[in-house]
Amino acid sequence: MNEPDLSDLSALVAITETRSFRAAAKVRGVSASSLSDAIRRLEERLNVRLLNRTTRSVTPTDACTQLLERLKPAMGEIAGALDALNSFRDSPTGTLKLNVPIIVARSILPPIVNRFLLSHPGISLDILASDTFIDILAAGFDAGIRYDESIERDMIAIPIGPRTQRFVLAAAPDYLDTHGTPEHPRDLINHACIRHRFASGVSFAWEFEKNGKTVKVTPKGPLLASSIEVELGAAIAGLGLIYTFEETITPAFQSGELVPVMQSWWLSFTGPRLYYPSRNHMPAPLRAFVDFIKSDHKLSLA
C-alpha cells in the first residue's frame, strides 16, 4: 500500500472539523472538488471508507474517527515543528486569520493593524469582519475579537483597543426642535427610534444606566436596518433618535449634524477582547500579534 500523502491527510482533518467540503475548501483556500479528490485518493490507498456523505451532511465513519484520534496530535506536532523554524528568522512569517465584529474593524483595528504590519513585514493578516457568532476554529480562524458576553470560557482573552466603550443616544437638531428632547428612557416610547438589526436577525432592546439603575426600552420607529451607514443617514436627516457605539457617532457630533441626548443615561461597557484557544504550539503569527497587543497596551498606559 502506498503511503497516504500528508496534504490529503490534512484535507481529511479539515473536512471532519468543519463537516463540510465547501467550508473546508474555504479554510484551505482550495476548491471543494480538489478536497473530494483528496478523500478519494485516501480511501483508495487505505481501502476503507472514511466519510459518509449525503447532500446535507458529511460525517466520519468509525474507521475515520479511530484514525483521527491518532492523526490529529501528530498533525499538530508537525505544524508546531514547522512553525518553530520561525525562531531562526529575524521576524516571524505566515498568515494570521482573524474574525472580528464590524464596529471593531471600522473604528478600532485600523491603527493597530497598521502598526503591527509595519513592525512585522513577514506576516500577512486575513481579516473577516462579521457580526455573526461562529466557532472560529471550525471556520479556520486563528483568533477572534468579541465582547465579553460572547466569548467562550475555554478561550484565552486579552483586551484590545479601548478598555471601555459607550453606547450614545443622539438626534439631529431639527428632530429635537420638532419633537422635543427626551429626558428619561421611558420618554423614548413616544419618540421615533432608528433601530439596528444584527446578522442573526435580532434587534435588541436599548439599555440605559444611571446611578446603578438599569432601564431597558423596546424602541419603535420608521427604520430597522443592518447598515450603520443607512441608520446614521436617517438620523442626520431628522427621522429619529439613534443609539449606537460612540465611535460611530463622534464625527457627526463634531460636524453638528447630530447632538447628544440623555448623556447621563449612556451605557458604558467593557471594550473588546482578542481571544484564541489555549495551545501548546501557538502559531508564530498569532504569538507575535498577542505579544504586540500586550506591548501596545503597556505603551498606551505609560
Rank of each mutant, 00 (worst) to 15 (best):
G76N: 04
T65Q: 15
V48L: 03
N86Y: 02
S107I: 00
S107P: 01
A79F: 14
S36M: 10
S87D: 15
V48K: 06
R53W: 05
S34L: 08
P60L: 08
R115K: 07
R45W: 10
I112K: 09
P110Y: 14
A38K: 04
P110S: 14
A74L: 15
I108Q: 02
A105S: 11
L68W: 00
A79R: 14
P101A: 00
T95Q: 02
E44C: 14
L85P: 05
L51C: 09
L98M: 02
A63R: 03
G76F: 02
S33N: 14
I102C: 07
R115S: 12
I112W: 06
F88I: 08
E43S: 03
A32Q: 10
S119C: 03
V48A: 09
L98W: 06
R22Y: 05
R70W: 04
R40F: 11
R56I: 02
R89C: 06
L82Y: 10
R56N: 06
V48C: 11
L109A: 08
L71T: 01
K72W: 00
R49A: 13
A23L: 10
E43G: 08
L68S: 15
G94A: 00
R49C: 10
D83H: 03
D83E: 05
P110M: 14
L68Q: 04
V58A: 01
E69C: 11
A74T: 07
V48E: 11
S91P: 04
V48W: 01
C64S: 15
T61W: 00
N47T: 08
L46K: 01
R56K: 08
S57D: 12
F88P: 00
L85V: 12
R45H: 13
R89N: 11
L96Y: 12
L85M: 07
R28S: 14
T59S: 13
R49N: 13
